[in-house]
């Protein structure tokens, strides 16, 4: 059995959650609403994050293109995603929403542009 202490981030209240995991059983205490229970369960069993960063641009009016994973990805793949982002390079023009890396770091999620950049 393992115990995790978390701060709930669902609202400004910031409840101190205790999540205990015993095999398949996950119990959340300290929450004051159902959203807190759901957050605690997910954070401990399958935490995810949206990764945002920038990619180098060639021939654009800006040197860096801001990007994000289209949806959240497993928290443990954040650094693998960053490695792929650092290796990437795009050529202007770029359109907002354009896919920059398909299935980035094997997460099944695309990395997309979060702004348009015109060619210089």
């Amino acid at each position: 059995m393992t115990t995790h202490e978390l701060i709930c981030i669902q609202c400004p209240l910031g409840c101190a959650l205790t999540v205990t995991v015993d095999g398949d059983r996950v119990e959340v205490s300290g929450n004051t609403c159902p959203r807190g229970a759901e957050y605690g369960r997910k954070e401990v069993t399958a935490p995810t994050r949206t990764v945002t960063s920038t990619v180098a641009v060639t021939g654009g009016v800006l040197a860096r293109l801001p990007v994000k994973t289209r949806t959240d990805v497993p928290k443990q793949s954040v650094f693998a995603v960053m490695q792929a982002v650092r290796a990437a390079r795009v050529t202007a023009p770029v359109t907002i929403g354009q896919t920059i890396i398909e299935n980035v770091a094997g997460t099944g999620v695309d990395l997309i542009a979060t702004r348009s950049i015109e060619a210089q």
């Binding site: 949206t50 979060t114 348009s116």
Partner: peptide, 22 residues
């Protein structure tokens, strides 16, 4: 502000700063 978390009230989705501005 390239991070996400913008627009939950205005657009009911989580956008990055440049997307919100766009």
């Amino acid at each position: 502000c390239i991070h996400n978390g913008f627009g939950l009230h205005t657009f009911h989705e989580e956008l990055t700063g440049p997307e919100y501005a766009a």
